[in-house]
Design a binder for these strands. Structure first.
Lengths: 221, 221
DNA sequence: TGCTACCTGACACTGGCCTGAACGGTAACA
DNA sequence: TGTTACCGTTCAGGCCAGTGTCAGGTAGCA
């Protein structure tokens, strides 16, 4: 496996690098978000180990940006914070796992091994669904060759459906994509967005499953 | 997603079941390793939440046996132990994550969602019963290659049959799946739903056992 | 044969869903 | 600073699929 380590503490960084390296993986170690962004652009990694407090910003920003491009590389967060809310925020930002400092190096190895077991290739960022052509990186959609513009909220929902065309998403799952985790929504916001997306993407693009949720129609229509 | 919860503490089990259920996943809750082993044999899960200290043995034994069969279903361990050595042992035994009790329910949700994310792109496990092909996660059924649409109520009943194909379910058991526990139903609602399901799934799919109840026909017909 | 359990077409009602419209907030711009 | 345009959210009204009930018919059993 090829691992990107983003960590600005020299001692810890060296220890982690050596450990992962000893486990038989190739490690690239960078000390800032700037370098991290360059690295993921030029190299394809199987795993990213991400510290949160970095000299040029917060790890969450990097993570969110990464996920926004459609990159699904597994990310394990390394941080001193151990507040529940931070851990939730991390997982919601798209992290796959979490290690609280100080952590045992052998535990790190076990986690990395678990990711290695689970690893599978990165999907192609160009997705075709029904008569829609979606560029995950640029947040662009073509419908029958015509460009379609989605607002931020609409895209957030649409992305959920894209994870696997045809997947059934409950109302609660869709709400979790728009709001802070666990936020209770009283109104029919989701319905309104579904309605607006249908207007843009085609009325048959999103199918209502009464009493259960919605799903994106994966076939031509 | 379909989740198997292995937990012998009633209070905690109920709380976890309700939370996962609220997140839009189907939960089967068992209280011992024996039942857990039966469940994984008859049903295909996307995630297993595993307590370690159970009345009839230690969760690690179940986990190791599961992995030995080549089953790669993600497993999150729920345990009161927070020793690093136990966590490592768990991860090495094939667990994907662990939660230390007492844990925040919203954190549980986040972890479960993270597992769901990690598995995006994977098709849901398909269950085959008779000439029906069932996608448990997406609530989808194919009958001889043709899609079949069930309503929410119909699906609730069908799910009950699916958990143990070929097993007899009494009218009372079926009613419990539709209504608040203990609600007395006077009319022939169950009969009506059975009739409606037969129309969609095939007349031989559900067998009447006069005076006893109904069972799903597990073999080709 | 009669008795009972079960089946199913029909129907009224409810609540889930859809959508046009309006309101407040915000960011861009002159 | 005021103006404008757009986005997110809420509300209200209407529609209709899903649900529960009933009644008449059918099949199993003694």
């Amino acid at each position: 496996m090829r691992v990107l380590l983003v960590e600005d503490t020299i001692g810890l960084g060296e220890a982690v690098r050596d450990q992962i390296s000893d486990d038989g993986h190739a490690v690239d170690w960078v000390q800032s978000l700037g370098f991290a962004e360059t690295s993921v652009k030029t190299t394809s990694y199987n795993l990213i180990l991400l510290d949160l407090m970095l000299p040029d910003g917060h790890g969450f920003d990097f993570l969110k940006k990464l996920r926004a491009t459609g990159d699904t590389t597994p990310v394990i967060i390394l941080t001193a914070r151990d507040q529940v809310s931070d851990r939730i925020a991390g997982l919601n930002a798209g992290a796959d796992d979490y290690l609280v400092k100080p952590f045992d190096l052998s535990e790190l190895s076990a986690r990395v091994a678990a990711v290695a077991r689970r690893y599978r290739g990165n999907p192609n960022p160009l997705v075709r669904v029904g008569n829609l052509e979606v560029d995950l990186g640029d947040h662009r959609i073509n419908r029958n060759g015509q460009p379609v513009e989605l607002t931020a909220r609409e895209w957030a929902l649409f992305e959920g459906f894209l994870q696997r065309p045809g997947i059934l998403l409950s109302r609660a799952q869709l709400e979790d994509r728009l709001y802070e985790f666990g936020a209770e929504i009283e109104s029919n916001t989701i319905e309104v967005y579904i309605s607006r997306m249908r207007k843009k993407l085609g009325h048959d693009a999103i199918v209502t499953v009464r009493g259960m949720g919605y799903r994106l129609e994966p076939n031509e229509h």
